[in-house]
Structure formats: C-alpha cells, structure tokens
C-alpha cells in the first residue's frame, strides 16, 4: 500500500453525471482532493451532495464520468477491487450506522477483526485506544441503543478510523447534535486530519462547522444549477464569493437567488393554468 505521490490527487472526479429517471441529479461535476486537505461539500437540501458522496465511495455507479480514488478508477471496478480500495478509507455515516446487534466495542473492533488477523488482546487494546481518542473510554460494553446520538457519531468516527485510513468520508457529521456536541465532533475531525495527516471529505450544510474544519470547499447549486458546482475554493475565497446563492447560503437568508417561494407570475400561472396580464388582479 504505497502512499500516493504528492502530486497525485487522493480523489479526482471528472465530469460526473448521474440521472435518476431522466432527472439529472449530478450534472458534470469535477473536483480534486489533494492529500491532507479537508474538503467540504456544501449545498442546500436535495442538491445532490449525499448522492455525490455515495458515488465517490462506490455505493452508486455514475451514468457517465470518472471517479479516481488514490489514482485508481473505481467506476468499473468489481467487488474485490472495490473492497481493496475501501479498506483504505473510513466513513462516518449520518446516523452513525452502528450495528445494533453488537456492542460499541464490537462495532469499533469489526473492521479490525475482519481485515486483519490480529490477536484478540491487541484488537481490544486498539478498540480502547480508538474509543479514548473520541472520548468514550469505558463504553465498550454498551449497545448502540443505550447511548446518545452524539455518542453514536463519535463511536462511528472511532470505527471509521479503526484501520487508520488515509481518507475519511463524513456524511453530515453534525446533523441533529447540540452546539456543544457539534464542536466536539468538529474538533475531533480536525484533530484526526491535522494530527494524523488524514485527508477528509465532509458533507455538511452547517456553515459554522464547515468554516471551522474545512481547508477547501465546493458548493453544489440547486434549482437551475442543480447538480453543478457553483463555487469552489478555500474558506476565505468562498466567504468572499460574489455569487449571490453562495452568500445566501453562508448567511442563512430566507430569500435571495434561491427563492423562498416561486415568483408571483409562476404562482399565478400554476394556480390558474395560464399567465395573467401584469398589473391586473394581484397589484
């Protein structure tokens, strides 16, 4: 498992297109993630950021385009090849996705047990270390149902990092957490990436946390820009972006380029079935 050379991007997505029943959810997406970066994928609800992530981890197959992980094309890969790639990255799911039938400790141990032939004592030790890293020492014997949502996220993180991956994907890591827990998860993610040199891809719509941990960002558009990247750059560049939609998203304004409601004309057209003359009934 040779580390990729500095100049080879860890992730390289080119012209990714995905259609669901004729609707283009992803429309020509291209971006690169270099080693050590923390890439934030932002965008409003339904903009396709989760779909994009599913493609990058190989769960979904694109309609067209190419996805390279560690310099290897994964779109045409068979199961065994995909498994080989997948051992090199970890993923933190939105809900934590812990196996309910296993204890916290067994969940964290799972990738280690499955992909190595380590002695059970060593596995135990590694599990303890990972749990300590996320601040959950002594929770090994609890079932996922017995711990809080924030704890589940942290256990999920510990599991994602169990095999010391080079790359970490994180799907909405802060959704549904209280602000304190958000910052805890953020700091954990940041620590992992900065201290361990892990490359990270985080999907989020939480701006505070995005600017806190991100080193590069891309934003996906909605509406007419559905499935396209409307902004890309460092957090500073994004903050200074002239794009109205980006500004609206960052500042959390209810109305703007992304309309709160449909335009009045559209509304009338939809209501009555044909457009009315201007300055008529609704002035």
């Amino acid at each position: 498992m040779s580390a990729p050379a500095e100049n080879i991007p860890v992730i390289e997505v080119t012209d990714l297109v995905r259609e669901f029943h004729g609707r283009r959810v992803l429309n020509g997406i291209s971006f690169k993630v270099m080693k050590g970066d923390t890439m934030i994928i932002m965008g409003g609800s339904g903009c396709g950021k989760s779909t994009l992530l599913r493609h990058v981890i190989g769960s979904m197959k694109p309609t067209s385009g190419s996805i390279k992980l560690f310099g290897e094309e994964i779109t045409g890969l068979d199961e065994a090849g995909l498994a080989r790639i997948r051992r090199r990255f970890g993923m933190l799911f939105q809900s934590g996705a812990l196996l309910q039938s296993m204890t916290v400790g067994e969940n964290v141990a799972l990738p280690i047990v499955e992909h190595s032939k380590l002695d059970p004592g060593i596995v135990d030790l590694m599990v303890k270390l990972k749990l300590e890293m996320v601040g959950l020492t002594g929770f090994e014997h609890l079932k996922p149902a017995e711990i809080s949502g924030g704890m589940k996220k942290r256990v999920g993180l510990a599991r994602a990092l169990a095999l010391d991956p080079e790359l970490l994907f994180s799907d909405e890591p802060t959704a549904g957490l209280d602000p304190i827990m958000v910052s805890v998860v953020d700091i954990l993610t940041k620590d992992m990436t900065r201290k361990l040199g892990v490359t990270a891809v985080v999907v989020t719509h939480d701006m505070t946390s995005a600017f806190r941990i991100g080193s590069r960002m891309i934003m996906l558009g909605t509406g007419p820009n559905q499935g396209k990247i409307i902004a890309t750059g460092t957090p500073e560049e994004i903050r200074a972006s002239a794009n109205g939609e980006v500004q609206q998203f960052i500042n959390g304004e209810p109305d703007g380029p992304v309309p709160l409601k449909l335009s009045k004309d559209d509304y009338v057209t939809r209501l009555l079935g044909h457009p009315r003359l201007k300055n008529n009934a609704f002035t």
């Binding site: 981890i57 769960s59 199961e79 995909l82 498994a83 080989r84 997948r86 051992r87 990255f89 970890g90 993923m91 799911f93 939105q94 809900s95 996705a97 812990l98 196996l99 309910q100 039938s101 799972l110 990738p111 499955e114 992909h115 599991r159 994907f169």
Partner: peptide, 25 residues
Amino acid sequence: AELGTMKVSEEIEALEVMAINPIRF
C-alpha cells in the same frame, strides 16, 4: 425485519463501505 431495519439505518451500506460483504457477514 432485522435486515430491513439494518438497510434503512444505513448499517448494510456501512458494512459495504467497510469492505465487509453483507452476504457473508
């Protein structure tokens, strides 16, 4: 019901991403 719940709560996808085949596991 058990497998369905696991599917819905992303557990099966998590297994796949961990390179653990859900059929085998």
